[in-house]
Design a binder for these strands. Structure first.
Length: 782
DNA sequence: CATGGCCCTG
DNA sequence: CAGGGCCATG
């Protein structure tokens, strides 16, 4: 699973902030032999590293975890056999993955701590040795450049010895802590430990002493450092400069400095950590913690390393001992308390799940976007699949001579057992960038209204023999062609529907790419899984409200069609009526993600559905699906079953479901045509009533502008929440349909039992490509 | 025969 | 909207 290129990513992975760098590395060839949705994009693994890693690791120690990056997320590691885990860890994690404590560790949030336990001791020992060796090796340089900078070269050696001791003490303490933690885990199901630890840390830091927080921070930092050095036994001083170019202070430097400055900035840092993390829940909290570390790395140690000496180290050692002891005790205490309180928590939930519960902080959009970005990016490499899908979807208009011909693809779901979700379905998000809006450019003036005129029709003569027959509608004037360019502008990417694969990579050039508001929300895929599960955790119902807000917000679709909308997402008025549907569609006990994101298409993040589980398909259709289908109707009145499958990746299509959805669209059309006919007849009546100037009056009535009653009715029916901007194209199509009906009625063709067929045929040809945003699972609009 | 569209009814 | 009937298509 792990390809060698991954190692390259991992090398750069520690660049917590180096999104760009890692991202570029994601383009390395041969990374993803098989496009699997679960494959986490390297670009997002690195940001996830500092955050996830520490939170997932009970002891904050770098764990060597099995690779399995692209393992089907549905198969949770924590359920797997420990031995297998070990083997995989040894084989993939150590060899292929290579990076010790690298962000890939984040993948293994679900990993069994027990399974890893065995390795921890050895790893730590090795890490300690490596660190020691590195320190020895870098001593000359370190002393000259870094230590010398402190102006305390005199106490260098003593200080180093002190550090050595401290280091060992730390290791011992950490091992003890780890052992305790694991005991707790074993006893209570490996849960919530991280969360508790975090809280503990914050509390300690709040207490003013900050020792605990420091301990923790120190340990984490060491982990990072060790992991990096463990990765490759190269000269740390050299490597650090490159690998951690984004860090103003190299980790190696920090490795030494932080001990000195431990006490100094501890309180302040903890405070910052709290500020950044506590007010945010879950993920953001982790992010905050991560930021805390980042802040430490970047600035805190730069300033004052001047006068820290022997006494400082001793003080630190003392404080460390004391705090470690108390910290361990408190951790255990808290964990025990937690578990006594939360006995009904799902045992299967990985500890990190709680820690990463989506926050409802101001980073909603960012988080969502991050998740989606991650998902979308993870789909890279699936260009082929998407291309095929797009091909099926983007059927040429010519193939629509008749509605029946649309299904020429023979996409009928195979009779038999319900289809299981295909990997491609999981990757749906990746298709977001594609756009088939090319067709939007094609003229709408096709419908030969005149062809349907039957001047000699009896009905016409019967109705108004004296009135001037309505001449063939002058299409150019009637049809709002001006809107077409506008429509195109909505979909800048429409120019290359066939070049989807090439345009795929996460940042879609054409569509206004919604820059993730914050890098923090970028979550590793595994974390998305955790989110998914944790969100469903009965213990956390309080999270749903906020999440629903996300879900309800549907800027992405809006943005996808309206450049006017600001890409920076969230602030769309959200309608809450989606909530019930979301809750209801949990029927069957499996609430599935219903929400796709158009974030990729520049829509900002949709209130993204974190429920997009890797294997997540929903059996049956939910109100959200219906809503989405209605919105799709704006673009496609006659979607084929294949198209539907493409745009409902989270639906497990079987014959019944397919028929139901087809039926939906049939009903949509029915309503649409009924309204068209109704208004067309009304227009005819009015035209007849206004015998004076039927020509002019007619035009005004044949318009389906956004200010007309017909538009209002249609919008109300298909876009009840009115959150989605009705595409101009739909208005144009409605215009055409209305005029066709009008013409047919006016000319008396409606006397023909099949008089609507011709209109259907015309309208059928006017189907436009559904925005790629719809390809994502989820309910498009709240 | 399966699929899917249209029509009608509830 | 859902169901059922009818029909066209492949």
């Amino acid at each position: 699973m792990m390809d060698s290129p991954t190692d390259l990513f991992d090398d750069s992975a520690p660049q917590m902030h180096a999104f760009a760098a890692t991202h570029s590395s994601a383009d390395l060839p041969g990374v993803h032999p098989q496009p699997i949705a679960g494959r986490p994009p390297p670009a997002f693994r690195s940001p996830g590293f500092p955050l996830i890693h520490h939170l997932l690791q009970p002891g904050g120690a770098p764990r060597r975890i099995g690779g399995q990056l692209n393992t089907n997320p549905s198969t949770h590691r924590h359920l797997e056999d420990r031995d297998l885990e070990e083997d995989r860890g040894e084989r993939e994690g150590r060899v292929a993955q290579g990076v010790e404590g690298g962000e890939d560790g984040a993948m293994e949030g679900e990993d069994s701590s027990l399974g890893v336990k065995k390795r921890l001791g050895d790893e730590w020992s090795q890490d300690v040795l490596k660190v020691k060796r590195l320190k020895l090796e870098s001593r000359p340089r370190d002393g000259g450049a870094e230590v010398g900078g402190r102006g305390r070269e005199g106490g260098k050696e003593g200080k180093r010895r002190e550090r050595e001791e401290l280091k060992e003490q730390l290791e011992d303490a950490r091992e003890r802590l780890q052992a305790l933690q694991e005991k707790v885990w074993r006893a209570f199901g490996e849960k919530h430990l991280e969360d508790e630890e975090k809280e503990m840390r914050c509390r300690n830091g709040r207490g003013g002493d900050g020792g605990d927080g420091e301990d923790r921070g120190l340990l984490e930092e060491e982990d990072i450092t060790e992991g990096m050095y463990d990765e490759e036994d190269i000269d740390g001083a050299e490597m650090e400069k490159e690998t951690f170019s984004l860090l103003s202070v190299s980790p190696f430097d920090n490795f030494h400095k932080q001990r000195d400055e431990m006490q100094k900035d501890s309180v302040g840092r903890i405070e910052r950590g709290r500020a950044g993390g506590l007010h945010l829940e879950g993920v953001m909290e982790g992010a905050g913690l991560w930021l805390d570390c980042g802040g430490l790395l970047r600035g805190d140690w730069q300033g004052g390393i001047e006068d820290e000496g022997e006494e400082g180290g001793q003080k630190f050692a003392q404080a460390l001992k004391v705090e470690l002891g108390s910290a361990v005790a408190r951790v255990i205490d808290r964990v025990l308390r937690l578990y006594t309180e939360m006995t009904d928590a799902a045992p299967s939930s990985p500890p990190a799940a709680i820690s990463f519960l989506p926050s409802e902080g101001g980073n909603d959009g960012g988080r969502e976007g991050g998740v989606w970005m991650g998902l979308l990016t993870s789909g890279r490499g699936e260009d082929k699949v998407r291309g095929e899908e797009g091909k099926a979807v983007g059927r040429p208009d010519g193939g629509r001579e008749k509605p029946a011909q649309r299904r020429s693809n023979g996409s009928a779901p195979p009779p038999g057992p319900p289809r299981l979700a295909e990997p491609s379905d999981l990757s749906m998000p990746s298709a977001v960038q594609r756009s088939h809006d090319v067709r939007k450019a094609q003229p709408l003036l096709g419908p030969p209204l005149s062809a349907h005129l039957n001047p000699s029709h009896p009905n016409l003569a019967l109705h108004h023999p004296s009135l001037p027959r309505p001449p063939p509608l002058s299409h150019p004037t009637l049809l709002p062609t001006a809107s077409q360019p506008k429509d195109l502008s909505f979909h800048p990417s429409s120019s290359s529907s066939s070049s989807s694969s090439s345009s795929f990579p996460a940042p879609p050039p054409p569509p206004p790419p919604p820059p993730p508001p914050l890098p923090l929300p970028l979550l590793h895929y595994s974390m998305q899984q955790l989110f998914s599960r944790s969100l469903h955790h009965p213990q956390l119902p309080h999270l749903h409200p906020s999440r629903k807000d996300y879900l309800n917000s549907d800027p992405f679709l809006e943005f996808s069609t309206h450049p006017s909308s600001h890409p920076s997402f969230p602030p769309l008025p959200l309608l809450g009526h989606l909530d019930p549907s979301m809750a209801r569609h949990a029927h069957g006990g499996r609430e599935r993600g219903m929400r796709g994101d158009g974030g990729m298409r520049g829509g900002g993040m949709d209130g993204g559905e974190l429920y997009l589980t890797a294997g997540g398909t929903q059996e049956g259709l939910s109100p959200c699906h219906l809503k989405k289908a209605k919105l799709m109707f704006f673009y496609a009145r006659y979607p084929s079953s294949n198209t539907l499958k493409t745009y409902f990746p989270d639906v497990k299509f079987n014959r019944c479901v397919t028929s139901q959805m087809i039926k939906w669209f049939s009903n949509f059309r029915e309503f649409f045509y009924i309204q068209m006919e109704r208004f067309a007849r009304q227009a005819v009546r009015e035209a007849l009533t206004r015998e004076g100037a039927p020509r002019l009056g007619r035009e005004s009535h044949l318009r389906v502008g956004r200010d007309t009653e017909l538009y209002r009715i249609l919008n109300m029916h298909y876009n009840k929440s009115n959150v989605y901007q009705v595409p101009e194209r739909f208005i144009e199509v409605s215009d055409v349909a209305l005029r066709e009906f009008y013409s047919a009625i006016w000319t008396g063709r409606d006397s023909d039992p099949c008089w609507k067929k011709g209109i259907y045929k015309i309208i059928c040809k006017l189907d436009s490509p559904v925005p790629d945003a719809f390809r994502l699972p989820g309910c498009p609009v709240g």
